[in-house]
Design a protein around this nucleic acid. Structure first.
Length: 455
RNA sequence: GGAGGGAUGGCCGAGUGGACGAUGGCAACGGUCUUGAAAACCGUAGUGGGUGCAAGCUCACCGGGGGUUCGAAUCCCUCUCCCUCCGCCA
């Protein structure tokens, strides 16, 4: 969610920024709705103020009325209350008439308030819906371009691209050959884009998950989290996945539950509706979760192997930081992801995503791609984004400055650390030997009972 | 799944139709006292919206939504969540 003030003050500029992303947003409707909202608000608040005052007056009258009535009853019973019965009777009747008339008038005020409130509710609901359809403003340093072809690829780093004196096989041949991946039976169970990891395949993935969690926890200061994998729609909205990506989400037919497409969605909401102390920042979380995606938008793409499935595992880093620190943090998180690539011995390269390719909630995103020798491709294993205050606004996560300054929104960042299937592909394909066996990277051996070779 | 009890400010906890944005306590912050600290005492303090250069004024918010009423933290309906007991189950 953007700050409505930015749209109010610079609608044309916002439109340009959205256009940079090759996207559109209902800016005109938002400006109109915002104006209408304030108009109604002022009117309805004025009326409410009148009603509040009138109600208080009625309360006072009814209080006096009660006392006078008591006096009247006592006077009628012959007690001396300091006033004659007739005078009291007149006062009681006058007071009652005042109160009745005021009730009548204030009731009419109430009717107008109700009507205006109803309109206000509609205007606000529509305004909010429109606001949800405005993507984040890209950072000035995000390369401008309508699609991924404008992404900026940096030179390869890390390990050298492996050379073989035989033709390296793709993982979809090596995996089944080594009994690590069973495509046929995965499809039998759940259909296309599903597979079964088996034996070393399953163990290798588990080892990787554990290694990554340990590494980020111990080396980079992240607190490990285990979130629910099934969450309410509200969480998706806060993270910026809804309303736009409804079609890509697996949903429960009966209840308001959705399956995570990434741990980022759950982690964004850990501190929803909280005001954090500045001293608590940065908050760093790392979580392993499976990720479920319909992949409707990628129909027919990457159907071979385990590169793109409806279910995959990922270790995700997430941070809540001070707004002044978020770009510094972005670089650090990029490094945290790179460190895993280094530790596993991958050739990798950095990609700066263009405005047309960054995710809806992001202002700036880096991708990290590793080289996979068998399929001969650079595979995206990590995406590192600074969402600035976009998600924080939707999730309502703020902090109280230590110097007593105004409460403000935190910035949030997310980074894959890393996505498992593609790491598996890289390991299998890059570390293969002529006899089809696979060398296990040293850092993983402690997690695999010391095994050096998969064969 | 059945029965009952709850949800109030950072925390605890009063308040059951009218001056209540809400008594009180704790924690926090500022001050007095002290060589310093503690204790004691005095004082300040919620969030969001609208408007205004500002001071301010004003509206809303007592788990969410709806209703009754001139007026709702308070009454009614409903949803969510928490607790207790029973049943069932990995």
């Amino acid at each position: 969610m953007l700050d409505i003030n930015i749209i109010r003050q610079k609608p044309e500029w916002v439109k340009e920024q959205v256009a940079r992303r090759n996207d559109t947003a209902p800016i005109e409707a938002i400006v109109a709705g915002d104006n209408r909202r304030r108009e109604i608000l002022q009117e309805v608040e004025q009326l409410r103020r009148q009603r509040n005052e009138a109600s208080k007056q009625i309360g006072r009258w009814l209080g006096s009325l009660k006392k006078l009535t008591t006096d009247l009853q006592r006077a009628e019973a012959g007690q001396d209350v300091g006033q004659p019965v007739a005078g009291l009777r007149t006062q009681v009747m006058a007071m009652q008439a005042n109160a009745d008339q005021a009730k009548e008038e204030t009731g009419q005020l109430g009717d107008r308030i109700d009507a205006l409130t109803e309109e206000l509710r509609q205007v606000e609901a529509e305004l909010r819906q429109n606001m949800l359809w405005v993507p984040n403003i890209p950072h000035p340093t995000t390369p401008t371009g309508p699609d991924e072809s404008h992404n900026v690829h940096h030179d390869p780093q890390g390990a050298a691209i492996p050379r073989f004196d035989f033709t390296p096989k793709p993982h979809w041949e090596l995996g089944p050959q080594l009994g690590m991946i069973d495509f046929e039976r995965g499809v039998k169970i759940s259909g296309s884009r599903f597979y079964l990891l088996r034996g070393w395949g399953s163990r290798l993935q588990r080892a990787l998950i554990q290694f990554m969690l340990d590494f980020h926890g111990n080396q980079h200061g992240y607190t490990e989290m285990y979130p629910p994998f099934i969450v309410r729609a509200q969480n998706f909205e806060a993270a910026g996945q809804l309303p736009k990506f409804f079609d890509n989400i697996y949903r429960d037919a009966e209840e308001d539950f959705m399956l995570l497409g990434t741990a980022e969605i759950a982690l964004t909401n850990v501190h929803r509706d909280e005001i954090l102390d500045e001293a608590a920042l940065p908050i760093q979380y790392v979580a392993y979760t499976p990720c479920f995606r319909r992949e409707k938008m990628s129909a027919g793409k990457d159907v071979r192997g385990i590169k793109r499935g409806h279910q995959f595992d990922k270790v995700e880093m997430y941070q809540f930081v001070h707004p002044d620190k978020s770009y510094e943090t972005l670089e650090q998180m990029k490094q945290h992801a790179v460190d895993i690539c280094e530790a596993l011995g991958f050739p990798y390269r950095l990609v700066e995503l263009a405005t047309g390719d960054i995710s809806y909630a992001a202002a700036k995103t880096y991708d990290i791609e590793i080289w996979a020798a068998g399929c001969g491709e650079w595979l995206e294993v990590s995406s590192i984004s600074n969402c600035e205050d976009f998600q924080a606004r939707r999730a309502n996560v703020k902090f109280r400055p230590a110097d007593g300054g105004k409460i403000q929104f935190v910035h949030t960042l997310n980074a894959s650390g890393l996505a498992l299937p593609r790491v598996m592909i890289g390991l299998i394909e890059n570390n293969q030997q002529a006899d089809g066996s696979i060398i296990v990277p040293e850092v993983l051996r402690p997690y695999l009972g010391g095994a050096e070779l998969i064969k």
